[in-house]
Design a protein around this nucleic acid. Structure first.
Lengths: 125, 125
DNA sequence: AGTACAGTTGAATACTCGCTCAACTGTAAG
DNA sequence: CTTACAGTTGAGCGAGTATTCAACTGTACT
């Protein structure tokens, strides 16, 4: 860390013309405050996996509900793996479920819809 | 796969009252078409890591450029690790860079801004 | 020329995470 | 009450990934 502060000092000197230790210290605290807020990392982690991403995309595309047994048809993992995947997605608030008898239905949340939509949108430019 | 088709058949029978093999087959192909389109998975993978996510958030929050040496201050990895991280982000189209002398400046792309914004937005509800 | 520094690259290591297997819960039907 | 089925849970293994170390490129300054 002392190393990187040195380099930052040299950089600020380049930028400002002159630079004292206090300038470096101030900039350091400014920068550290930028690094806060890891809100959303768990959501991204949940989505950043082929199996889970496919499930979410399918649910978003369906614009409704799909039964676990239907989701099974479009994922190439075991039934157990599918359950794990859906559980992780539910924890991240990307899918919600409804049980009916012994069948369980999943649907995409608005969060999932928003993310997939934005993600697709950034490829059209 | 034969197993899951069986289960799907039983499910469709429950839903439709009756169900023949052709119904199952048709539903299967419908479902498989939903699983297409992995566009964006690499972007998510790039973002779904604490180090890289913090870098992107910082760049988005700054609404401008940051020097590598400044980014170094808010990431707790080595200088080399930082370089690897930025490289992966650049590959995913989440950051862009500009070299000036021996200093290199990074900025968030519109894709990064869009994603972070949407992600934050889904927590306010 | 040579030295110092900003940043990158590739290989090796350590670690996380996704998947499967087996055992389990809960629901419906004979 | 027993059997069959839908789905979940936890442990353990294998594969992918994040990080570091060392060597490198390119730029400025003397």
């Amino acid at each position: 860390m002392a190393q990187s502060a040195d380099r930052l000092g040299r950089y600020l000197e380049d930028e400002l013309g002159s630079c004292c230790d206090e300038d470096v210290q101030q900039r350091l605290t400014e920068l550290e405050s930028l690094g806060e807020g890891l809100h959303g990392l768990d959501v991204l982690s949940a989505l950043a996996n082929e199996t889970r991403y496919r499930l979410v995309r399918a649910l978003v595309a369906t614009d409704g509900e799909l039964c676990v047994c239907e989701l099974n048809a479009l994922s190439d993992v075991s039934e157990s793996g599918l359950s794990h995947a859906l559980s992780k997605l539910a924890d991240a608030g990307l899918v919600a479920s409804r049980t009916e008898g012994r069948w369980k239905h999943y649907r995409a949340t608005t969060r999932a819809v928003a993310l997939v939509t934005v993600l697709d949108g950034t490829f059209d430019e």
